[in-house]
Amino acid sequence: MAEAPPPTRWALAGPMRGGYGENFARLVASGADVDGEARLADALLPRGARVLDVGSGMGRVAAALVARGHDVTAVEPDAELVAQSRRTYPDLAVVEADVLAVSPDDVGTFDLVVCVGNVLVFLAEGTERRVLAHLRSLLAPGGRVLAGFHLRGGPAAARRYPPEELVADAGAAGLRVDLRAGSYELHPANEEYAVWLLSADPAAAHPAG
């Protein structure tokens, strides 16, 4: 039997999660623009691409990509957010699981893995390289990872993830950094928020897991 993934910082945060789902429910209900990440993801893809949304939350990014014609698999470990996603976007299929429990043998590989909304800074302590290596294993040939997180001013329960540490972890996981930007509209890199585009490094034969 496979070892269960360790509890994430998100799971351990409890009340410190701060009403994430409720906040986005209000935004969606009000008609606010919550598709910034999805617009960039869509621009990176051909029509009808296979996308994996890791830490899909209440489903807003995955649903926006489905609406743009992509084949999307959403993965979310938080049962409350999975339930909210199914209520808000009933046509969106969501796998309730930690990403480390998702095997390419079961779900296949993807043209883009989306890992946005601070997912990487809520991982279980010390699992960053393991998760990044696992994301690499889920990439189809030519596939890429789109990630984004706060460098400063993020959620209280999240870790601080300096850019140089992400670059080192990605390299150890067999990924290379193709782009770093400061927003999903591709503003210049800054010290507040980081958007990353990663791809498999063909020179990395044995990425660290």
Rank of each mutant, 00 (worst) to 15 (best):
V66L: 05
A93M: 04
P7F: 05
T109G: 07
D178L: 15
Y161W: 14
P90G: 04
L92H: 00
A41P: 02
A147L: 04
E165N: 11
R136H: 05
V82C: 13
A189N: 01
G143E: 01
D105M: 06
G69C: 08
A170D: 02
A158M: 07
D178G: 15
A168H: 08
G31F: 03
G174T: 08
V94R: 09
G19N: 11
D111A: 15
S103T: 12
A63S: 13
T8H: 11
A194M: 06
A133W: 06
H206C: 10
V121Q: 12
P155W: 03
A173I: 11
E3V: 14
L45P: 06
F110T: 05
D53Y: 01
G19Y: 00
P202H: 07
G171C: 01
L27A: 13
D201I: 08
V167K: 14
E96W: 10
W196C: 12
A124K: 12
L186D: 12
P141M: 06
G18Y: 02
A41G: 10
L186C: 13
E37P: 13
L135G: 05
F24Q: 07
H187Y: 03
H70W: 00
R86G: 07
Y20H: 14
L175V: 01
A101Q: 12
R47G: 12
A29T: 08
D78Y: 11
H150N: 13
L146P: 02
A181I: 09
L139Y: 02
G171M: 06
S199L: 06
G143L: 07
R152E: 15
P7Q: 05
G36W: 08
A170K: 09
M58H: 09
D78W: 13
